[in-house]
Design a protein around this nucleic acid. Structure first.
Lengths: 188, 188
DNA sequence: GAATTCGTTTAGAATAGTCTAAACGACGAG
DNA sequence: CTCGTCGTTTAGACTATTCTAAACGAATTC
């Protein structure tokens, strides 16, 4: 508590359970989407913390080592999910949660798209070019079969890429349309 | 080769490299999306195979055990990514790849949504109700802070759910709009 | 009804991933 | 300059996952 910055004292006793529930939940989501479970837990903790927490605060709150927090917080920072805060006269780094989920989603999508999605498309194209090299005259029926299947897969990935771009474009526009979409059926 | 069904003989020598490239690529995609790498490899193999392959054909082609193939092929079947084929007078099961990628994507989305996405929303709601129980009179400022943050997260997940539903609805409509979207910028 | 040939299950080995504790370099204070 | 406090890195322990080989039951053939 002495090391906490910008908070209004310890939370009411029962709220701790609510915080733990959210931390568990965000850890689960995180693991599901291919990130580390601890990353989600750290984010969940920061998300329900007014102000910012130091590395040691986080390690203590989640009962994990400082080294783990150091590694995972860097991943969170890379994804734009947390931000580093400096307080004057304090050599420690503090972190607070980014609360704009759409910005986070956009960033993660972008990261994923760059890192793996285009690589997928790349292997299809590479395979296609290998077929082309083997049978440039288009006489081999098996090669023809390969060509057709690979072309369909390529089409799919390209269309998928366009879809992702379209969704990203929507998030750029502050998602007014999507927000309206969500409003009309708030319960259930 | 004696155990292969409906194929037109062994593939031309150089095509093997193309097939291996695609198998590696689909294994990579598969692992990335949280499925097993072997599942993707099996699918890639079947996708570039005219006709259907038996369990042993697959195990031999990918150099993995029959037990592994048995387990993973069931997963692929559950996702609608492969289909079982019976040949009369042959006790073996044969498998062929589903080539409608949009149907596959829809199925996987549905599976994911049911299994984990709604569970995420559930933990946010549970956390919210815990806050409500602690501070029903809305007097505690920290509880109020929790409420606001949790409400924002809930909003996000609900809107995201609507977005997923909307995309699914598009895939139902044979994706004519999306196909057009993909056509207009076919190269790069 | 014994012997094959399937697909499935399972116990144990191999592998990959994750965490911690300790060591380390950087930095500032006394 | 020395000490203490940061964040980072790393070696080794630990855990979870995944694979294989073998055992098994069911179905079919001889």
């Amino acid at each position: 508590m002495a090391s906490r910055a910008n908070t209004q004292g310890p939370p009411a006793e029962g709220l701790e359970a609510a915080k733990q529930t959210l931390i568990r939940g965000s850890g689960r989501i995180s693991a599901f989407w291919g990130l580390n479970r601890a990353m989600g837990e750290i984010y969940g903790l920061l998300y329900l913390t007014p102000g910012a927490l130091s590395l040691d605060d986080i390690a203590h709150a989640l009962s994990i080592s400082k080294g783990s927090v150091s590694i995972h917080i860097r991943g969170l920072e890379r994804l734009g999910m947390v931000h580093k805060i400096w307080n004057v006269g304090d050599r420690r780094d503090y972190y607070e949660a980014e609360i704009d989920f759409w910005a986070i989603a956009k960033q993660i999508f972008k990261e994923r798209e760059k890192k793996e999605f285009e690589q997928a498309l790349g292997s299809v194209k590479e395979s296609m070019s290998l077929v082309e090299a083997v049978d440039p005259a288009h006489t081999d029926p098996t090669a023809q079969f390969y060509r057709e299947r690979l072309a369909e897969m390529q089409d799919f990935f390209m269309t998928l890429g366009k879809l992702v771009d379209a969704v990203q474009a929507l998030t750029e526009l502050r998602l007014s349309a999507l927000a309206a979409l969500g409003r009309d059926a708030q319960e259930e």
